[in-house]
Design a protein around this nucleic acid. Structure first.
Lengths: 127, 127
DNA sequence: ATTATTGCAAAAGTTTTGCATGCCG
DNA sequence: CGGCATGCAAAACTTTTGCAATAAT
């Protein structure tokens, strides 16, 4: 893979923040440094970086995909009301991939654990 | 919620199969019984049924959402190559929701555990 | 009679893609 | 120079929505 200024900038952006931006949010952010970058390029590079394992793609089922530059093992909470993605520090004790692989014909490379419910802010706003 | 012939037919369809069809696949299937049903109605009812907890909505990150009429606790494998969704009988021993809730401000209502990798068929085709 | 639900079609929203141009090695 | 990456814009795809008509209670 050939170096590109744009890709580096996108990766830097994701690694320097701890929220979980959508492609469009990354685009708006990176545009402050590379004003001519296009949304298509952002999508292309987010795909490449996710395929490489340098970032995570998070499909929440609520609106567009989110992305995460923090790739140490962790899980996510997704608010069903506002769609925000929040890091969870809880990690299962069991070796989940190993156990799940036991009766499975195919190769399990990774897993994702997502929690759903209502976030602190939405709970507050409902009262 | 008022009864509707269309909604009943959609739910019946999902409960009588053990694959994980997309909205469009449900539409094609239900159309054999209700030829005049529209895709919009299928989407509307899949949403309603998922909000009710009568079916599951599965967002895989590969193409459109899938739906599942089998709602007993279980998890899913998703093939990164072909996107197929496969039931996994493995279920974690721990009370995951309880443990994850311990240090979390907000309400966790459910969780979803997804495995990613390559399915049997795609492994075969790669050789 | 009242209100939820439908079919249809258009719109919205997200993501991908074709192509000429530019940049990296 | 050769080929991957880009910017732009159009297209593809999935999902939602407005509205008049229909069906359920």
């Amino acid at each position: 893979m050939k170096y590109s200024r744009q890709r580096e900038c996108i990766l830097n952006n994701l690694q320097s923040r701890r929220d979980h931006p959508t492609a469009d949010m990354v685009y708006e952010s990176v545009r402050e440094i590379q004003p001519n970058i296009s949304l298509g390029t952002v999508y292309r590079n987010l795909s490449l970086l996710a395929d490489n394992g340098q970032i995570l793609k998070i499909s929440t089922g609520i609106g567009p995909d989110h992305f995460d530059g923090f790739i140490e093992p962790h899980n996510h909470f997704i608010c069903k009301e506002c769609g925000i993605v929040i890091d969870m520090d809880f990690i299962p004790n069991e070796n989940i991939v190993k156990k799940a692989s036991e009766n499975f014909e195919g190769i399990i490379e990774s897993y994702e654990l997502q929690f759903f419910g209502k976030c602190k802010d939405c709970l507050k706003n409902n009262n």
